[in-house]
């Protein structure tokens, strides 16, 4: 924790040093995510609902995924650079430190300009929560939980992908397919997709469990309590998957696995 504090302090100091660029970057990184929301908003002003969900309700889904993404991209920058670290051989320098490699990746970099994404996501979410009539203290607590869990789940999925890079040395294209595409899909009500994609988003890359299922339960679209528990289940179940894959990948890298 001490390490993390030192890093956050140092990064904030160095990034905020160029004030104008810093603010411009925070703002502009937020608006590209906002454009995705605006598109849906434009479409849904012409229609009553999307698969039975109003624009306000969809806004809640979008905001959970985007906030989670913002948290991940702020603190998980090291995982994003895994491909580069492996290709340049710089991953070696992580192994000469007395902490675990995953921990070291987490402190590889902190990117505060991604917080613009979080700001826009919370604005969109608040607007959705207030207008869809679910505003209450318990819901706000649940929402905060879901945002944090979304951050953790996205982190876990990216750990799996980073581990894959131990074998493939390249994972940026895989990232588009397994994270970017599914992240976008999980910001819509899953019932508009065919069962195949819905199952993938539930059981394989379980981003849907963090948005669609719990919010469905809260909005009374389902009575199944599993829907509410789904986010906790998927985050916990992903832990052993990440840990085993990462350890196996690392063994391969250090040359005991092959």
């Amino acid at each position: 924790m001490e390490i993390f504090k030192t890093l956050v302090k140092a990064s904030l100091k160095s990034q905020a040093g160029y004030k104008f660029n810093f603010i411009l970057d925070i703002f502009s990184s937020g608006i590209i995510f906002f454009s995705d929301f605006l598109i849906i908003a434009v479409i849904l002003t012409n229609f009553k609902s999307l698969g039975g969900w109003t624009l306000h309700e969809v806004a809640i889904l979008i905001s959970i995924i985007d906030s989670g993404w913002a948290i991940y991209r702020t603190f998980g920058e090291g995982l994003e650079r895994m491909q580069e670290l492996l290709q340049t051989g710089r991953f070696d320098t992580l192994l000469i430190r007395p902490i675990s490699t995953l921990k070291h990746l987490m402190i590889h970099a902190v990117q505060f300009r991604r917080l613009g994404i979080l700001v826009q996501a919370i604005i969109v979410g608040s607007w959705g929560i207030i207008n869809s009539g679910v505003f209450s203290l318990p819901f706000i607590i649940l929402y905060i939980f879901l945002v944090i869990l979304a951050g953790i789940l996205i982190l876990e999925i990216n750990i799996v992908l980073a581990a894959v890079a131990f074998w493939t040395l390249k994972n940026d294209d895989l990232l588009v397919l397994t994270v970017y595409a599914t992240k976008t899909a999980a910001s819509y009500p899953l019932n508009i997709f065919n069962p195949f994609l819905k199952n993938i988003l539930t059981f394989v890359i379980p981003l849907g469990t963090i948005t669609y299922f719990p919010i469905s339960f809260v909005l009374g679209k389902t009575d199944n309590i599993t829907a509410l528990l789904a986010p906790f289940l998927s985050v916990v179940l992903m832990i052993p998957v990440c840990s085993i894959l990462w350890k196996t990948g690392l063994k391969k890298y250090t040359g005991t696995g092959s």
Binding site: I43, L50, D173, L174, V176, L177, T178, Y180, A181, T182, T184, A185, Y188, I192, F193, N194, L197
Partner: peptide, 17 residues
């Protein structure tokens, strides 16, 4: 090719919408 499939999923999401 993998990237293209990702892009296709984006298209598919739009079609579903």
């Amino acid at each position: 090719v993998i990237n293209m499939f990702g892009s296709f999923i984006f298209g598919y999401i739009g079609v579903c919408v």
